[in-house]
Structures are given as C-alpha cells and as structure tokens.
Amino acid sequence: MLKNIELSIEEGEVVVVVGPSGSGKSTMLRCINRLETIGSGELTVNGTQLNDPKVDINKVRRDIGMVFQHFNLYPHMKVIDNITLAPTKVLGVPKKEATETAMFYLEKVGIAHKADAYPSQLSGGQQQRVAIARGLAMRPKIMLFDEPTSALDPEMVGEVLDVMKTLAREGMTMVVVTHEMGFAREVADRVVFMDQGQILEVNEPGEFFGNPREERLQTFLSRLLSH
C-alpha cells in the first residue's frame, strides 16, 4: 500500500529508487506500467492517465520496457524469438526486420552469439542482458528495472550494470529499483528513498549519500555502508 507518493520524472532522467525490503519500491515501479492496480490517486505516463480504467493499457505498455529480478525470459523460445515476439505481435513489425533489430540489441548487450540458444543454456547475467535487449527491441521511451541484479551471482552483477550504465549515458529514461548503491551514486540523476510505502527523500546522489536529511535514511545508509 503506497501513500503520499509525489514524484515526477523528466524525459532522459535516470531515477534510482532505494529503500528497505517491503518499502513499496517495486510496487511503485510496477504502477508505472500498471502491473499493480492503482486504487486511488493520479499517475500520468507519456501523457496518458493510467489511473483511468478505460485507458488502453496495452498501447501504453508498448512504450515502457521492463526488466525483472528473475529475468522472466520465455523458456520455450530461443533468445532471438524471446526478443522478436512483442515487436512482431504487438507492433506488427515484419519478422525479418524484427530479427535485425533483435540482433542489433543483442550485439549491444554483448551476447549476439547466443541468439539461437535457449534461456536455460545461459548464465544469469547473460539471461538478464537478453531481458534488457528484449525490452529495448520495442524501442521504448522508458525502461523500468525491478531489482535487475538481485538474483545474480556477485560476479555477474557487473556485466548487467555496465549495460545499464551505457543505456543511461545514451539518454534513456530509466527508473531503477536496486540495492546497488554504487550504481545509484554513479549513474542516477536523482535518488529516491522509500520506507513503509512512502517517499521520504529525493535528492541528487551527492547530497543523498553525502548529506541525507531524513533520520530514517541516515540509519539506512549507515547500516549499508558500515560493512
């Protein structure tokens, strides 16, 4: 249950959301493409009122890519088909063109040689990079990341974060829920701190980490950084 959420994200901005487990970070993220039902309040994405139940949600979702903690690749499809599914079925892109686009993004995330593999044949880091390519292949205006590195072996976190950093540098609008404070510090334009379903503090990373105002955030950061 979220309350007192007042946040607006600009085009091209990278916003990182941090906070303890159960603080509502993921819930807030999942409201942006309405994977969560919006009970009350207003939420506008790309000029569309998402809280309006009559809105064509499938159309809104075309422009919002999402990357999940557990990758959620389709296990019965090859990597390439995972990526071309939505462009061909949702946007009606011809198969050949969709394949070329898919290869372009696989190249970009450094995994083009696995196009014909099945997800189960890939490592966690590789699967997550495929998931990012799958999101990008729709050429979205926004990318949402829901704890994209939380389910990865420590050694594979870097390769996924590198891809995300490149994206951020290229000007993609990104909302990232994560526990990777290094990423937040380096890449975020603003960092959001949530606790108990509320946004307690929003600031640019320097101030956020160097000079936190809220006591709850100070405690949170001190516990993170002390070990």
Partner: peptide, 9 residues
Amino acid sequence: EAARSSGLS
C-alpha cells in the same frame, strides 16, 4: 507479467 508488460494482450 513479462508478456503483458511488453504490450501483448
């Protein structure tokens, strides 16, 4: 969730 969030009906 992955499928619906990509815009599939």
